[in-house]
Amino acid sequence: MTDVTDTADAPGREERKGRTPFVVRLVRQPAGAIGLAIVVALVAIALLADQIAPYSPIKMAAGRPLTSPSFEHLLGTDEFGRDMFSRIVHGARLTLQIGLIAVGISLTVGTLIGLVAAYAGGFVEKLLMRSTDVVFSFTETLIALAFVAVLGPSLENAMIAVGIAGVPFYARTCYASALGEEGKPYFEASIAAGAGHARLLFLHLLPNVVPTMIVIATLGLSNAILAAAALSFLGLGAQPPTPEWGAMLSAGRDFFNRAPWLMLYPGLAIALTVLAFNILGDALREALDPRSKDRS
């Protein structure tokens, strides 16, 4: 979070509401506060999963199979007698990891492509942005599916696939944002002052696209988590007995009549996590750029 605060105070941002610190502006919006609270809670659960979960997430026969939620098994047990609460808690850790790694890939590669395209101009710009357009029109699902098809179903491959599939969107956003920065007087001034390529790219352009990139990465986390869960649901991502929510949901549907909780809680967990990042992303965008209010 400290990163966000620093960059939001970077030069070149006009029309800010006084000098209210960024975090205050974020939390002052009810949506921002709620989103942040859920995300913080999720991170805490993920970090403390071993302490919170009463059983190992893959321990079979922790209780009788398919018992309904009780004091002993808060969310019941699955068909192998594994404790669902422990599996959901460990799933939080896994889900955040998947999201962060996938978004990390999209963000790093996308930002680099966008920056270089905007800075280099000419042929490099055309080549990079046209290829991005082409890849973009394949749609994320198809790219992710193609990668898993080639590499084979596994959680690692699903993360890589989702990460690569997201690159074009991040590259486009970064490119547009960097182009805007290049037109500003401070940028021209530093060219005139003789700043070198590295300085212009990494000390001027990069810090100024960071706020935008943070917003889309936050919203992107919800996308990545959904996409990876969908792959796992289809059997193309996490494999049993990994406590991944999408995979758990898929396994739980066979027992819907006898144990509806097996299908209810993993779905609820995904929805809540995705919702939290969506709300937080929207609130971040508003806090960073008050003019964007009312746009979705």
Partner: peptide, 15 residues
């Protein structure tokens, strides 16, 4: 709407 975009379609489908 924001709740709607957060619900995984595969879960909605099962429900």
């Amino acid at each position: 709407a924001i709740a709607g975009i957060s619900i995984p379609h595969f879960w909605l489908g099962l429900l």
